[in-house]
């Protein structure tokens, strides 16, 4: 089959504004959208620019807006999209070139929620004990690959760039509900900020967008509840 691939292009060195270009790409239904982009880059126009690395949904490099929804280009197949495919850069982060955005604002939010284990108690000689149930409590949010698909699908984030966004909250959740962590109070204080969890309007875009199947909205709700009752 042939796919009509529309790509929103922008070269900051020559273009005033982004524009669409259309390519006819030979494909089969099991091809990834990433394969189509590579076809263009390697056979038609070497200047087409995007990030990618692992090509199987683990490294989080290639989140893009594909037919109007955020996906990893390496994890969505032609058979799910049909023969008309439109690819654009993620919304809400500064456009740099073609499909590549500036990720720094995203990582800044991530860093601001203290996304690491906080525990100053003396370390035991072996492992800290944790029951399977305690471990299960935060399992879902450990799957995050920081691809930004959730945050850049959030309408609140589009209009308020100061909002931490779902990914940062997911990564806070991962520690708030870890029985070994002692930093929940500190972290909840950060999230209680006016740009914190309360900006979430439970649109569920984030949950739909997550390529790892994380229940993002639910995890945000759990953090809100933890704030209300100060109990994790």
């Amino acid at each position: 089959m042939d796919v009509t691939l529309k790509v929103r292009r922008f070269n900051p060195e020559t273009d005033q504004a982004p524009h669409f270009e259309t390519y006819q790409v030979p494909a089969n239904p099991m091809d990834r959208v990433l394969d189509l982009l590579h076809y263009v880059k390697w056979n038609i126009d070497g200047s087409l620019t995007f990030r990618r690395s692992c090509a199987h949904g683990i490294c989080g490099s290639d989140a893009m807006l594909i037919n109007g929804a955020n996906h990893l280009a390496c994890k969505v197949l032609v058979r799910e999209l049909g023969d008309q495919i439109t690819v654009e850069a993620l919304r809400g982060l500064p456009l740099v070139k073609d499909l590549l955005v500036d990720m720094e604002p995203f990582f800044r939010s991530y860093r601001s929620v203290l996304p690491y284990l906080i525990n100053d108690e003396p370390e035991p000689d072996t492992e800290r004990r944790q029951s399977p149930a305690e471990r299960e409590r935060f399992d879902d949010t450990t799957k995050c690959i920081l691809c930004a698909a959730c945050t850049t699908s959030c309408p609140v984030f589009w209009t308020d760039k100061e909002y931490f966004g779902p990914a940062a909250i997911v990564n806070a959740h991962r520690f708030i509900f870890d029985s070994r962590d002692r930093g929940a109070g500190e972290r909840l204080e950060v999230l209680n900020d006016k740009e914190g969890v309360w900006r979430c309007r439970t649109t569920f875009n984030c949950t739909d967008a997550c390529p790892r199947g994380i229940k993002v909205t639910q995890s945000i709700q759990e953090v809100k509840r933890a704030l209300l009752f100060r109990k994790v």
């Binding site: 492992e127 800290r128 944790q130 399977p132 305690e134 471990r135 870890d178 070994r180």
Partner: peptide, 20 residues
């Protein structure tokens, strides 16, 4: 090295006794 990672917060799967 495994205990180091665990102390850093690595979420290993656990046995019923809470060990790695």
């Amino acid at each position: 090295a495994v205990y180091d990672l665990e102390h850093m917060g690595m979420p290993f799967n656990r046995t019923p006794e809470g060990l790695i």
